[in-house]
């Protein structure tokens, strides 16, 4: 199978703070990867490194020659003094044929918004317009940074459905960062649990039962990894003892994380040493 993009040993530092360390990542055409992790775990930094927005302290990124990235940022703050229609926005920085623009809007589920001003859009509409902009030029890799931030539950569910449709139709690979720590799109082929480094990765069910994942999210969500198809398939809660509520994963838990017996085959425990001291949510600093 061809590889869309290969990243090796990605390391990003902000000042003296290491936001991302030694991340290896390989993306294949058409696969959906969800990146989860606590605040400051380097999720956004990972995506921003992939688009070249942050300098690498170490490591390299090797794109395939035909890689076309569509990027959906976390949020777009449009200054109210800037008059800009959706149609014009889709043509920044380069002109895009009208047919391509309406196709992109159609695919993002907002064909009727072309003439609207950006500042007049609701949060959900703006996210879809951002998706439409990312879909111009038919990307084969979509990067979405907490794309459902600020949307309510039905709103994000609808957005994920739209995304699945896009993927099914165009076959593009999708890497999305999820801020709803425990909510992962049902179609995810792979979940990547990040905390400065890759803690573990694998199929959603496998990751949800991995000790490294539990160490990070256990106390907050009872360890459950909720999927949007969550009407069935709850068996992953079985068999694994929940961490007690209010008891953050102790230092000991995590320091010996690497020596846990790895539960069923899929999850690949990486170096599970976590440098932060007591809280599983080590602050906002990493972005």
């Amino acid at each position: 199978m061809t590889v869309l993009l290969e990243a090796r040993d990605l390391t990003v530092r902000y000042g003296g703070h290491t936001a991302l360390e030694g991340v290896d990542l390989q993306l294949s055409p058409g696969e959906i990867v969800t990146v989860v992790g606590p605040n400051g775990s380097g999720k956004s930094t990972l995506l921003r490194a992939l688009i070249g927005a942050v300098p690498l302290a170490q490591g390299r990124i090797q794109p395939s020659p035909d890689l076309r990235i569509g990027y959906v940022p976390q949020k777009l703050q449009v200054d109210p003094t800037l008059p800009l229609t959706v149609d014009r926005f889709l043509q920044l920085p380069h002109r895009v044929p009208a047919a391509e623009r309406s196709r992109a809007l159609e695919e993002a589920g907002v064909p009727h918004l072309a003439g609207r001003q950006l500042v007049s859009l609701s949060g959900g509409q703006l996210q879809r317009v951002l998706l439409a902009r990312a879909l111009r030029g038919r990307p084969n890799l979509l990067l979405l940074d907490e794309a459902t931030q600020g949307l309510d539950q039905p709103g994000s569910a609808a957005f994920y459905r739209q995304l699945e449709e896009v993927r099914d139709r165009s076959g593009c690979a999708v890497v999305m960062v999820s801020h709803e720590l425990h909510v992962v799109m049902s179609a995810s082929d792979r979940v990547l649990c990040l905390n400065g480094h890759i803690c573990c990765q694998g199929e959603p069910e496998a990751v949800s039962s991995a000790p490294e994942y539990r160490a990070l999210f256990g106390s907050g969500t009872g360890g459950a990894l909720a999927l949007y198809r969550h009407q069935h398939d709850h068996h992953h809660e079985d068999g694994m003892p929940h961490l007690a509520h209010g008891h953050g994963p102790g230092r000991g838990d995590r320091e010996d994380g690497g020596r846990h017996d790895p539960p069923p085959p899929e999850p690949v425990p990486a170096k599970a040493t976590v440098e932060e001291e007591t809280s599983p949510f080590p602050g906002e600093s990493g972005r």
Partner: peptide, 9 residues
């Protein structure tokens, strides 16, 4: 509009 969008372009 956005530094990240600029980078991506």
């Amino acid at each position: 509009l956005s530094e990240d969008l600029a980078h991506a372009s």
